[in-house]
Design a protein around this nucleic acid. Structure first.
Lengths: 212, 212
DNA sequence: GTCTATACTTGGATAGAC
DNA sequence: GTCTATCCAAGTATAGAC
């Protein structure tokens, strides 16, 4: 669809600026306010370039979401690499949550999900972008709770976790207050710490453990 | 601001139709697609009437949200009246969640929260509409867990609960699948049932219970 | 109170100069 | 590749007929 000429160096810079502008616009005025002119102004270039490089405004917005999705996945994966305690992982997750909140990554995601209602076919593409986030969450839950003394359905917990993050983002933005959300991480940290202490007892308490 | 002539019977019918149309529009095409013309078409009346009766489109949308908020609060309060078991209350909450999901009540709320980004001052008004929902959630958590054998911060749990509902709504709409959310209620039902069985032991287990 | 008609603004998208 | 200029569609809002 989009031209994407092969050898453009300046073109790449423009596309990067437009994606950054799209993210900034989604953050500041939401999906409903993300017009081509608003985005171009923040990108510091002409409005017509959006259509030249991306074809349409929704296409650019999807590209922006994909960019964020890819960047955050990289950051998240470093989380799973630390195979330390659960409490340690909760701390790291909290730090990343703050980072996402301040940078507006989740805002962009939420705006795209709710905004998808008004553009036919957009929902499918947003859904595809969200898939890695869900997979990551499920993997994280599975790994973290593998050694825990309780048996939980990882898929459901992951679903609740993703939903929780999205909901907290909505509320945090509405209230201009992120402390309410962070307090929940502190709560999780306490529970995680408890699970860490109980871990040595895992073998004793696993009554109906099926897997290895 | 709005005229609201005192003795209009037909006028009231029109306002009702417009509010209903606004809700339907927010559900079907979201905040970004909720234009005066779209709403008027669904309300079966003229676009100009929106400005006559409500002053502006955002004002009508807020009125629609207030309408929903009031109606749902009435339904929710019947929940708290049943002072039965926790499991029973989870069942009732599940039924209401389904009702809200199918009728699109939460969709309207989510669209208004995320859409508020693009209209200066709208956020404050949406926030005011959300307040009763939060208060209700906190009261519900407090009452339900008062007799439970564990000590929990009701405010934080309520905040997480509201966030969870909003997030589940976002995901349910994106996936056109509400079963993932409902599965969590089944999970909660199991936990509630566990708490019900443990309730007789509450006196024994309360190690650091401060209140009555 | 409700409609038609319209003024005005903004947004999506394209053509063509450079 | 990027800009200016422009067309057209859709939106908000108002004036005035009925």
């Amino acid at each position: 669809m989009s031209p994407r000429p092969s050898g453009g160096q300046a073109a790449t810079a423009t596309r990067v600026a437009l994606v950054a502008g799209a993210i900034e616009t989604l953050r500041e005025v939401g999906f409903a306010g993300a017009s081509a002119r608003q985005i171009a102004r923040r990108a510091g270039c002409n409005q017509a370039l959006i259509f030249y490089h991306f074809g349409s405004v929704p296409d650019l917005l999807v590209a922006a979401l994909e960019e964020i999705s890819a960047r955050r996945m990289a950051a998240y994966r470093t989380l799973l690499d630390r195979t330390g305690s659960i409490a340690e992982l909760v701390d790291a997750a909290r730090a990343i949550f703050i980072e996402d909140l301040d940078a507006g990554h989740v805002t962009v995601l939420v705006e795209m999900i709710s905004g998808a209602q008004s553009v036919p076919g957009l929902g499918e593409r947003v859904k595809a972008c969200l898939e890695p986030w869900r997979d990551f969450a499920e993997t994280a839950v599975r790994e973290v709770l593998a050694s825990a003394p309780i048996q939980v359905p990882a898929g459901q917990v992951a679903h609740a976790l993703v939903a929780g993050i999205l909901g907290l983002e909505l509320l945090a933005h509405l209230d201009s207050d992120r402390s309410s959300g962070l307090a929940l991480f502190d709560q999780a940290r306490t529970i995680g710490d408890l699970l860490d202490r109980l871990r040595p007892l895992a073998g004793l308490l696993n009554l109906k453990q099926g897997d290895t």
